[in-house]
């Protein structure tokens, strides 16, 4: 059976699920915050507004979204009792697991794209005349996307392990709020996955502009932690999914 068929099936399940509101929530909020931002960076008309928006989007909403997406994608299997139906289809369990993973990645891509557009909208509405720093925001959005991967892997594991919608979300919320504080520590920030979206997005923006936001002692630590936690959570989550008993 083709993996793409499993993907299409997962995608269909999102119909009528109002997921579009969740995808757009953070970019819309960030736009509003951006419009009222008074942060001003000399020599760069766009930078203050974009930075404010990135902070709002990446510190809280982005880590929370990973949990919401993961919970959403498993929600109806839990509540409608359809794990047993999905898992008696002639496809491997890993295909089901990774189809869900990829759908979450796709939703995250939509959110990040919407955020990119949101920064342009906010600046344009404020009447900025300088050219929109597209490449810089794109870099930030892209690294932010990467920085969410370990969290998604973790959240998908939790969402398939705990048979409730609320459980993983509560865990996620509790671990997200300290992220802002922990991100301020150059030592601990890179070690804490919930701080990664913030670190990734701010750092990428400033690097692309030739500066350093100063959140990171070592970009290497950041990437090593990111890749190894992604690998760890993916392996543990998918192995657990494959081995567990479905009752």
């Amino acid at each position: 059976m083709m993996f793409s068929n499993v993907l299409k099936s997962e995608w269909l399940k999102l119909k009528h699920s109002k997921v579009v509101f969740i995808v757009l929530a953070s970019p819309v909020l960030a736009t509003i915050i951006g419009l009222f931002s008074t942060m001003h960076v000399p020599e760069h008309q766009w930078l203050g507004t974009i930075t404010t928006m990135i902070l709002a989007h990446s510190a809280i909403f982005l880590p929370l979204l990973t949990g919401v997406f993961a919970a959403l994608i498993c929600r109806h299997e839990h509540s409608g009792g359809s794990w047993k139906q999905v898992l008696t289809l002639p496809v491997s369990r890993l295909q089901i697991y990774f189809a869900k993973f990829i759908v979450i990645l796709f939703l995250l891509t939509l959110t990040q794209t919407a955020f990119l557009i949101a920064t342009w909208v906010a600046g344009t509405l404020k009447g900025f005349s300088d050219p929109f720093p597209f490449v810089n925001v794109l870099m930030s959005v892209g690294v932010g996307w990467l920085a969410c991967l370990p969290l998604i892997a973790l959240q998908l594991w939790l969402a398939t392990m705990l048979t409730s919608f609320a459980g993983p979300s509560v865990v996620n919320v509790m671990l997200t709020f300290p992220a802002v504080i922990i991100a301020n520590s150059p030592l601990f920030g890179p070690l804490y996955p919930w701080a990664h979206p913030l670190l990734g997005m701010t750092q990428a923006l400033s690097y692309s502009l030739g500066g350093d936001a100063g959140f990171l002692d070592s970009a290497v630590t950041f990437y090593v932690v990111m890749i190894s936690s992604l690998a760890l959570f993916t392996v543990v989550g998918s192995v657990h999914f494959q081995r567990r008993e479905w009752v």
Binding site: L12, K15, H76, Q85
Partner: peptide
Amino acid sequence: VESPSYYPHLTGKDNLETLRKIL
């Protein structure tokens, strides 16, 4: 198996379509 499985937010037809895409 036991209680029926379904996606409440989808129509009956779409419920079957999620399976048909794979089958």
